[in-house]
Simulated assay, not measured.
Amino acid sequence: MRQNPSFAFTDVAELRRLIDRNPWVTLVSHAAEGLVASHYAVLLDEGRDDLTIVGHVGRPDDAVHGLGDGELLVVVQGPHGYVSPGWYGEGAAVPTWNFVSAHLAGVPEILTAEENLAVLDRLVARFERPMPSPRLMWERPNDAQFIERLERGTVGFRLTPTRVTAKRKLSQNRPDEVIETIIGELSGDGPHRNPGLAAEMRRSQDARDAARGRAGGAR
């Protein structure tokens, strides 16, 4: 992530929303043999209201990452996509990439087997609940022996980040009419259609409009 203050955001509620809506993350560690990366789903710790996350890795990724021994970087990637210079109007312009992303870094705590089982149960429920016939972790045909074997093949962790870097680059530096054009193009049926990014831009623009309205009313 570009290390400058442009488009940075620190609002905890917005960061929690980003994590909750984009649970498939990249885990990066600096191991003895160099950088290593893995990909897993995480959840916000339901007992906290900060940016603490819980998750698991499958063995032997715990050893590969040295999980619990050093700093772990968790990369959360939200909506992102291409923005054509043709959407800016007639002036000189180059393309860009809009995105929402966060980096969470800290030393993870290893969970007990009981805690890990609870996280695995939550993770399955999170994605199975919307299914027409959910297959939850403890439901038949799964039995306790099967679930215990599953748990032994994983290592759960809890990470309370000590460093957070987040960017929300959604064309905020452009005039309102250009932002509306970009949202329209991303919502359309063109080659760079991206309704998820369009929705994120619309949400950002609506928040900016509301803030400007409040500022105007305060005068």
Rank of each mutant, 00 (worst) to 15 (best):
P191D: 06
P141S: 01
Q145W: 04
H30T: 14
G58E: 15
R21M: 05
Y88R: 11
A92S: 14
E200Q: 14
F157T: 00
V119R: 07
E90F: 09
N173W: 08
N194I: 05
R149W: 05
T112E: 06
V42D: 02
V100N: 01
R122L: 10
G156L: 04
R140I: 08
T181C: 03
K167T: 05
P175V: 06
R203P: 00
M137R: 14
A113E: 14
E90W: 09
N142F: 12
G58L: 10
R2K: 09
H65K: 03
V76G: 01
L73R: 06
G70S: 15
P175E: 09
G86E: 13
V75I: 13
D189N: 11
Y40D: 12
R16L: 12
E148G: 07
N116H: 14
G217W: 03
A199P: 02
L67I: 03
D61P: 00
A92Q: 15
L18D: 01
G91C: 09
V178Q: 04
F99W: 14
A218E: 15
P132D: 02
Y88E: 11
W138D: 15
Y88V: 08
G86N: 14
T10G: 12
P161K: 06
R219F: 11
R129C: 09
R152V: 06
A118H: 03
A63W: 07
V74A: 05
A198K: 01
H56Q: 12
S84H: 04
W24N: 11
P130N: 07
G153H: 06
N4Q: 13
G47V: 10
